[in-house]
């Protein structure tokens, strides 16, 4: 309940409330960023940019109960941007790319997840990391429970495909 009050304040422009909220959720956010970007340096950069974008865009959030989902969506977009920037950068530095691949063995599933669309990733993180039920996800992102089911199904199918590909190579 307190969470929702904080979210309401944050949306209304209370900056301290938003900072507090981000602090509370920092482990979840950092871990998602890390699973996506695979190293501390980039994950920290992501958190900084994520904080900036949250403050800049918080006024666009319509309802307090969707704030957490919105935050994850913003975070995934930031990670996506950093990843894009990085791949351009690493294209020129193939040595680093090798080490990068070695590290990633540990997180092969999240590696596969990072290849899904941001919407699909959000769904997977909400379901399997934040432990939300389909019904709750439906409420959070404003779609019917049936749609959640079918989207999850599509996401999982794609994931399975990606996962198996990764496993074989």
């Amino acid at each position: 309940m307190e969470q929702i009050e904080l979210a309401k304040k944050a949306i209304a422009g209370d900056e301290t409330a938003l900072l507090q909220l981000l602090k509370q959720e920092e482990s979840t956010h950092y871990r998602i960023a890390f699973s996506y970007l695979k190293n501390e340096h980039d994950s920290l950069e992501a958190i900084q940019e994520f904080t900036f974008r949250c403050f800049r865009k918080i006024h666009t959030v319509k309802q307090a109960q969707f704030l957490n989902t919105w935050l994850i969506r913003v975070l995934l977009n930031v990670c996506n941007d950093i990843q894009k920037k990085k791949s351009r950068y690493e294209f020129r530095k193939d040595v680093e790319e090798l080490t990068f691949q070695v590290d990633s063995n540990k997180l092969e599933l999240s590696e596969a997840i990072s290849k899904l669309s941001p919407e699909q990733q959000q769904l997977i993180y909400l379901k399997y990391y934040c432990d939300l039920k389909n019904k709750e996800i439906a409420k959070e992102i404003h779609i019917s429970e049936g749609t959640v089911k079918s989207r999850l199904h599509t996401a999982l199918k794609k994931l399975r495909l990606l996962f198996n590909e990764g496993g074989q190579s």
Binding site: E15, L19, L22, K23, E26, S27, Y30, R31, I32, F34, S35, E40, L44, E45, I47, Q48, E49, F50, T51, F52, C54, F55, K106, L107, L109, S110, I113, Y128, Y129
Partner: peptide, 23 residues
């Protein structure tokens, strides 16, 4: 996956600094 994620150490102090930077 959940276990993997939970095993990621969270650098709390650095996060506080970077959150402040973003702000």
């Amino acid at each position: 996956l959940k276990e993997e994620l939970t095993n990621i150490t969270v650098p709390t102090e650095k996060l506080a600094t970077l959150r402040q930077n973003g702000y």
